[in-house]
């Protein structure tokens, strides 16, 4: 399986996403925002960072990039697309996901290992988790407050489209402690914390077992590979 990672001006975690894809067992393909070519990939990751310096709104200018026309078209045809942090912001700006992300309630950039509960393990990116599984992956954002209108929020909750919720503390003021959401089809997922930083022992969050041994993020990437094998 080949999974594309789109690099935008200001992307920071594109190589980390490529590394996570490799460790999960797929082939990462580097894609460039300025092209109109997905190079025949089977799935896509929009990585974290500060594309265009968060000018206008976080993710807004990147969502208008040339390659986003192909990303939107592929997503609407069912290709799995994962947006992490800034990638999540791009997906809301591109209207592939509902809701929006605003500056953290406390006004500060927050960087910590964050406990989450997986709320929907039937999407293309979360199928490898058990129901209500609790995981810990790094969180680092300044504009991670998830908001939506009352009607949209009720629909997202009613349709099980909240895929992960913050545990212990709500780090950014997100409504209903929402850390990630999916589209109706379950192929497009946006997540504010960073699974690509918890994929290899020695480089992940601390666990009770050992320092930096946490690899809870890996299942996002193995999930999409397993889903592709089932569908093949």
């Amino acid at each position: 399986m080949r999974i594309g990672v789109v690099t935008f001006p200001g992307s920071l975690d594109d190589r980390d996403a490529q590394r996570a894809i490799r460790l999960a067992g797929a082939e990462p393909v580097a894609l460039w925002h300025g092209e109109h070519d997905l190079h025949g990939v089977d799935a896509l990751v929009l990585p974290g960072g500060f594309s265009y310096g968060d000018y206008l709104r976080a993710g807004a200018i990147a969502s208008l990039s040339p390659i986003m026309a192909e990303v939107i078209d592929a997503a609407n045809k069912g290709m799995p697309v994962l947006g992490i942090c800034n990638g999540f912001q791009m997906l809301t700006e591109a209207h592939l996901l509902e809701g929006g992300l605003i500056r953290n309630e406390a006004g500060a950039f927050i960087c910590r290992d964050q406990r989450l509960r997986i709320e929907n393990n039937s999407t293309d990116w979360t199928g490898g988790f058990t129901d209500k599984q609790e995981i810990t992956i790094p969180l680092k954002n300044g504009e991670g407050g998830f908001i939506a209108s009352t009607e949209t929020l009720a629909r997202l909750e009613g349709e099980g489209r909240v895929i992960a919720r913050y545990l212990d503390v709500n780090p950014n003021g997100s409504l209903n402690d929402i850390a990630g959401v999916t589209n109706a089809r379950g192929n497009v997922v946006g997540l504010m914390p960073h699974p690509e930083h918890a994929v290899e022992p020695g480089f992940g969050p601390d666990t009770a077992a050992a320092m930096r041994s946490g690899v809870d993020g890996l299942a996002f990437f193995t999930s999409v590979i397993e889903r592709a094998l089932v569908n093949a």
Partner: peptide, 8 residues
Amino acid sequence: TVLSNSVI
């Protein structure tokens, strides 16, 4: 459509 995001 561009200068503002009607969600926020």
